[in-house]
Computed example of a mutant assay.
Amino acid sequence: MQIIISPQGAIAFCHPTPDTISSNWFTMEYWQQKSAITGSSKGRYTTWFVKPDLSVGDDNQWVLRHYYRGGLMEKLSKDSYLYTGLNKTRAFAELALLVRLYNEGFPVPKPVAANVERHGLHYRADIIIERVEGAQDLVAKLSKSSMSDSQWQQLGSCIAQFHQRGVYHADLNAKNILITEDQFYLIDFDRGEIRNPSTKWQTANLERLERSFNKEKGILSTLHFTQENWQALMAGYSKG
């Protein structure tokens, strides 16, 4: 991971070259002007899908995400954070974690770049990752069709491998898990970190995931999720 420092902040990048990357990459308007926006994902805020120029050496789609606050802090500032050092910013910390996990072969999106812009004692930030081709999140998947027991077990085994490595996912929920034809991926590692493996936080992680499935089931009663599915996931988790 390389870093470009400027008076306005800093940009970290993985494979683009310094003579092509700029802070413009982290704005929706830049890609809109190039007619490069291919779609979006709307939650509390919008995440943009863009197709970068061939001139920067990549024909894959990218995901552009701005960092927003949640909870009570959102009422004070929706996207401003206290600056306590570059490596402690949410964007750089997430990018560094993704670089480590991606290089170790874990099923995570390929990291591209992160941007931090300082404003006095505070900063705002953005991250770009590669979009996982052919993937959909589990809520979208389960709203249309069910998964087999072997797939649920595969998911449980996937989560176990992250936990065995000590990977703490701060928001492990059904929408932060992607599925392709043959692979599960974990996404959105904001506030994630490497910890010493511990039954306490690992169990809390799993309980959070189960609550998210039940919450989505409450929203959409036809969602293909049952307690039997959860038991299959836990069976795969136990086997690792």
Rank of each mutant, 00 (worst) to 15 (best):
L142D: 07
S212C: 08
I187W: 00
L98C: 04
G218V: 09
A174C: 14
E104K: 13
T89C: 07
P107R: 06
E181R: 12
R118K: 15
W230A: 11
L220I: 13
G166K: 11
I127K: 03
R208A: 02
H224E: 04
S148F: 12
A113F: 09
E181D: 15
I187T: 02
L86W: 12
E210A: 09
Y123C: 08
E207C: 03
L101F: 01
Q154L: 09
G156S: 12
A170Y: 12
L220S: 13
L98E: 03
A170R: 11
F225N: 01
P197F: 00
E207I: 11
L82N: 03
H224D: 04
E207K: 14
A113G: 03
R100Y: 01
Y83P: 00
L223W: 02
K88R: 15
V108T: 05
E216N: 05
Q154E: 14
K217P: 07
Y123A: 03
Y185L: 02
A140Q: 13
A96T: 14
E181G: 06
A170W: 10
Y185R: 06
I129C: 08
V132E: 02
R131Q: 13
E207P: 00
Q164I: 09
A204C: 00
W201P: 04
F225V: 06
T84S: 13
D190M: 00
K217G: 05
R208E: 06
S146N: 14
V112I: 15
Q202E: 14
P111M: 06
K141H: 12
I127R: 01
A204G: 02
R100H: 06
A140F: 06
H122T: 15
T84E: 09
N176H: 01
Q151P: 01
L97V: 06
Y83C: 03
G85C: 09
E104W: 03
V167A: 09
A93M: 06
S212K: 12
S157Q: 13
R100E: 11
W152T: 03
H122P: 00
S221R: 15
R118G: 03
E130L: 05
A114F: 02
A113K: 08
K217A: 11
G166H: 10
L206W: 05
L172Q: 07
T180W: 11
A93C: 05
D171L: 06
N173F: 06
G105Q: 09
V167L: 11
V116A: 04
P107K: 07
T222L: 04
P107D: 03
G156C: 11
K144E: 14
E228T: 15
L186W: 06
K217W: 05
K144D: 10
A204R: 13
F189V: 08
L209F: 10
Q227W: 11
D190H: 01
E130S: 12
F162I: 11
D182E: 13
